[in-house]
């Protein structure tokens, strides 16, 4: 108790500075969210949760959401790891150029980027027309208005979330360890695989968690690129709120989504910590 008081005195200015944003969050974020979530137990029972967890429609949509989030995280990792590595070893000039390319779309509205994908991926879009003209395909590929389109759009939006954590960890890796490994007889590939990669795993886990968790709640991209046939949970919540006015069920679904996201984030943290103790 006294330690806490001492701490309070010492941290006085910090606490004072933190109070305003904290109040801001409490008032404008936590309170409304809590209010919304309280709808889920209106009537004093868990009927909405029961429906959300047992109704075939919601189960199917949850599974589809998990599947897409997993695929998106995996593709982001496969693309993001080499990209982060390239940026980490590049000369300052090339690193700057690389980041500019990575960040430029990051600063563009998701909506604009999603529409851009519609122009590129459409049946009559740039990509299909080029491939048709080159005679590589004789039927347009179905790249839009299906799961493929949603995944392409989401990977594009979420890739920076994978690259930045990995990059920042890679920059901190001591390069002399690689030289040491090679000095001890490891081939460059072995040194990369057995020294460098394990050291960058914290970044990989952080990036994967970010991408996966953000994917779970994605709305604009699946709504626009899914053609109505790809139903992710965010789209379903929006329909419940706006179209069906079933806020109780919407709140229950939102809580389950929140719990799943927190649970998965905690699990990945666990994995990460476990991995660190192995090394």
């Amino acid at each position: 108790m006294s330690a806490g008081l001492l701490g309070l005195r010492r941290d006085g200015p910090a606490i004072a500075m933190g109070t305003v944003p904290l109040l801001f969050l409490l008032l404008l974020f936590v309170y409304p969210v809590a209010r919304l979530l309280s709808f889920s137990v209106e009537g004093g029972n868990f009927a909405h949760f029961e429906k959300a967890l047992t109704d075939g429609l919601y189960v199917q949509v949850f599974l589809e959401t998990l599947r897409i989030a997993l695929i998106v995280a995996a593709i982001c990792l496969v693309l993001g790891y080499p990209l982060a590595y390239g940026l980490a070893i590049a000369s300052p000039l090339w690193a700057t150029i690389g980041f500019a390319f990575l960040l430029l779309p990051f600063w563009t509205s998701v909506l604009v980027r999603t529409y851009a994908w519609m122009i590129l991926l459409g049946r009559n879009g740039l990509l299909n027309r080029t491939l048709l003209d080159l005679g590589i395909i004789d039927q347009p590929l179905a790249l839009l208005h299906n799961r493929t389109g949603v995944i392409i759009g989401m990977v594009h939006v979420l890739l920076p979330y994978m690259v930045f954590p990995i990059y920042s960890v890679m920059r901190r890796v001591d390069r002399q360890l690689l030289s040491a490994a090679e000095g001890l007889g490891a081939s460059p590939t072995q040194a990369f695989r057995r020294v460098f990669v394990p050291l960058t795993l914290p970044g990989v886990f952080a990036g994967a968690t970010l991408v996966f968790v953000i994917s779970l709640g994605f709305f604009i991209t699946p709504a626009l690129l899914g053609g109505g046939r790809v139903m992710m949970i965010g789209v379903q919540i929006e329909r419940l709120v706006r179209q069906f006015l079933d806020w109780g069920l919407a709140a229950a679904v939102a809580i389950i989504l929140l719990a799943a996201a927190l649970g998965i984030a905690a699990l990945l943290r666990r994995l990460l910590r476990g991995d660190l103790t192995w090394s």
Binding site: L57, E64, G228, R229, V230, M231, R239, F244
Partner: peptide, 10 residues
């Protein structure tokens, strides 16, 4: 109908 449609379409 909306509910049935949501199930049918996906």
């Amino acid at each position: 109908m909306q509910d049935r449609w949501s199930r049918w379409v996906i």
